[in-house]
Design a protein around this nucleic acid. Structure first.
Length: 648
RNA sequence: GCUGCUGUAGCUCAGUGGUAGAGCACUCCCUUGGUAAGGGAGAGGUCGACAGUUCAAUCCUGUCCAGCAGCACCA
């Protein structure tokens, strides 16, 4: 047998026979390492301890101490252990796939009966039994035909289909967790006993289409989370509770911002508090847009189908449109309109009205455009995904030569706004030409390069999403990261030569000839509804002062201070601050608690001491420490703090 | 849209084949209290909608509507 050379991370080398497994290598180093080992990285690939190494290689042995590998293997083995548990309890359940995901794994099953929460408890108990049995994990490479016959014989049609999808040059690996067998590319742990038995939890069950295809059968997906130890699991559960506290639907109720009801699914009833956030944000955006060189327009909600036919939406987007039929007595046939799902066709109408010159370009047209889309019922989510919403929409009509500079200009514009709104961590994704597309290769080359160059010119790197662009042009997507690490795609910049063509937009060039402008669709926030939802969740309802709907509550400590409290409120209001008095017959503790829960940024308490001294006792949200301030002093201070970021 | 679950007071939830209950919120009374819930009383519900089974339905069955989780969708 030939010898090969293994190189360890510390640079040491070892001569071993070809075909040696990482398990043997680990045991050769020490018995304890042999026991502790879970997997290896061989020439950069994550290797099962049982896979033979045939040639010279770099090798690193992993143990449960190595976070990345350990978590992946624990979760992956748990997926198998769960599938085994399910089949031991219900032998006729069909197994499919069970990958690792963030914090855990899932496994999809085909079973006529739905799994219940009680079933999850039973499965968990069975899984613990399996882990405690400490069964060895074994693997073999099988011949494709043998594997196929095996799964046909055992009645596992999904596995047969998976087998057929494995590329011909890949080995067919079989794994055994005890007697239970699964087709799997591996790697896995040495034994089920290496899985911590107290650091996982089955969380929920939900439907999922086989292979993610809505035309295929719906399976039942059981989700689990798993960690290296019980404390990490606990920390995760605590994190989930923290995330639940930020839920904008809950905070929206508690802060009396908005509500939704079943007569208008997917549409928001904004209450005074919520509408204050909305209009404050909109006023800010309007000022930014003016400074940013945009003209603002407003276009109709209900538009005849002719325009949607011309724009292509009738053909491609009709399912998502609210159709409005108008049936007049005298009319020969019904007039069919649609609520606008997008503003772009209307903006082209504005552009088309009157002859445009190359001197008018780039023409930056903005609208706080109210749109309605018939979103699938299952997609609705609070104010984040709705059927009626308002975009901070804008379309830049430009020449090809202006794309790059307009793009760079937009990125700078967006960066300022995200910064003002407290989002300092965001990324750009560049989506390039998809398979199905229109336009020449040269024009795609040019426009993709323009977007990429604009990012670099503005000083930002981008991630490439190849083939993800629209059929007519590439786009940039701007994704921000919130306070708890979640990502939200908000901004977009999309190059569209198609719609101007369809709707016959033209301008007169310097040569006196008519030319087609390109249209740049762009948004910074996306929609006000969704963005406000993000702001709420990001801040846990503790919005920055300028956006807080109720900025100051002046609370009386004794009723003899009521008149003074009203005077303080008047002074604050005169300074443009949203202030209100709380003169109720309640103790100051009660008022403090209530307004703290209500996320009011400032509570000014006034008792007789304050009345006599003409001061206020200031308590900032989230701070236990209070401080005293003179009336004029606090008005000046709060007026400064409450100014919008662009007005400081 | 699909699978599963849920729908009882403004909110959070308990409960029963014989037309309902708690806590908080609300109103009133007592209390004037110094930085996260003072005490008492009262009012408040077509038990999501519509059918069906039953002597009797909030409860059982069906259909629909809405919400939640996930999947699919998001030109």
């Amino acid at each position: 047998m030939s010898q090969i050379t293994l190189t360890f991370p510390d640079g040491n080398t070892r001569e071993v026979p070809a075909g040696i497994t990482p398990a043997q290598v680990a045991s050769d180093i020490s018995t304890s390492l042999g026991k502790k080992a879970i997997s290896a990285t061989v020439n950069g690939a994550h290797y099962d301890l049982q896979w033979p190494i045939e040639g010279n290689a770099s090798i690193a042995i992993h143990t449960l101490q190595d976070d990345a590998q350990a978590l992946e293997l624990i979760r992956h083995d748990l997926a198998h252990i769960m599938a085994r548990a399910v089949q031991e309890i219900w032998p006729d359940v069909k197994v499919t796939i069970g990958p690792v995901r963030d914090y855990g794994w899932f496994y999809d099953f085909d079973r006529a009966e739905p799994f219940t929460p009680e079933d999850l408890g039973q499965i968990e108990a069975k899984m613990k039994e399996i882990i405690n049995a400490r069964d060895a994990v074994k693997t073999e490479v099988w011949d494709r035909a043998r594997a196929r016959k095996h799964y046909e014989d055992t009645g596992e049609p999904y596995k047969v289909e998976l087998l057929d999808r494995i590329p011909g040059d890949e080995p067919i690996r079989m794994y055994w967790h005890g007697d239970w067998q699964d087709l799997c590319r591996g790697p896995h742990l040495q034994s089920t006993g290496q899985v911590p038995a107290d650091a996982f939890k089955l969380t929920h069950v939900a439907g999922a289409y086989w292979l993610g295809d809505s035309s295929r059968p719906m399976l039942q997906r059981i989700y689990g989370v798993a960690f290296k130890n019980r404390d990490a699991l606990k920390a995760h559960m605590t994190m989930l509770e923290e995330a639940a506290k930020r839920d904008h639907r809950k905070l929206g109720r508690e802060m009396n911002l908005f509500h939704m009801q079943e007569e208008a699914p997917g549409q928001v009833f904004w209450h005074p508090n919520g509408w204050t956030i909305y209009t404050t944000l909109q006023d800010y955006m309007r000022r930014k847009q003016r400074k940013g060189g945009y003209v603002e327009v407003n276009t109709p909600q209900v538009v005849n189908r002719k325009l949607w036919e011309a724009s292509g939406h009738w053909e491609n987007y009709q399912e998502n449109m609210f159709i409005v039929e108008v049936d007049e007595d005298h009319a020969r046939e019904k007039t069919i309109n649609a609520l606008k799902p997008m503003n772009c066709p209307c903006h082209v109408q504005v552009f088309n009205h009157g002859m445009k010159s190359y001197r008018d370009l780039p023409l930056r047209m903005a609208e706080f455009g109210s749109c309605n889309r018939y979103e699938p019922s299952g997609a609705l989510h609070g104010i984040m995904r709705v059927r009626g919403f308002t975009q901070d929409d804008g379309h830049i009509f430009a020449t090809d030569d202006q794309i790059e500079s307009e793009c760079a200009r937009f990125i700078a514009f967006l960066a300022e706004i995200y910064d003002d709104l407290g989002f300092h961590d965001w990324t750009i994704k560049l989506s390039t030409r998809p398979e199905k597309r229109v336009g020449s290769e040269e024009s795609w080359d040019r426009v993709e390069a323009a977007l990429g160059n604009a990012c670099k010119a503005a000083g930002y790197d981008y991630e490439l999403l190849e083939g993800e662009g629209a059929f007519y042009g590439p786009k940039l997507e701007f994704t921000l990261t919130d306070a708890i690490g979640r990502e939200w795609q908000c901004g977009t910049f999309q190059v569209d030569p198609n719609l101007p063509e369809r709707l016959d937009a033209e301008y007169v060039g310097a040569d006196g000839e008519k030319h087609r402008p390109v249209m740049l669709h762009r948004a910074v926030l996306g929609s006000f509804e969704r963005f406000i939802g993000i702001l709420i969740e990001n801040s846990e309802g503790k919005l920055p002062l300028w956006l807080a709907p109720r900025q100051v509550v002046v609370a009386s400590i004794v009723s003899d201070a009521d008149a003074y409290c009203l005077e303080v409120v008047d002074a604050l209001k005169a300074a443009g601050i949203r202030a209100e008095a709380d003169l109720r017959n309640e103790k100051i503790n009660y008022k403090i608690r209530e307004h703290s829960v209500g996320k009011v940024p400032y509570i000014l308490a006034c008792g007789m001491k304050e009345v006599e001294e003409r001061t206020v006792s200031v308590r900032k949200l989230g701070e236990k420490q209070t401080f005293g301030a003179g009336l004029d002093e606090i008005v000046t201070r709060l007026r400064g703090e409450a100014a919008a970021p662009d007005q400081r």
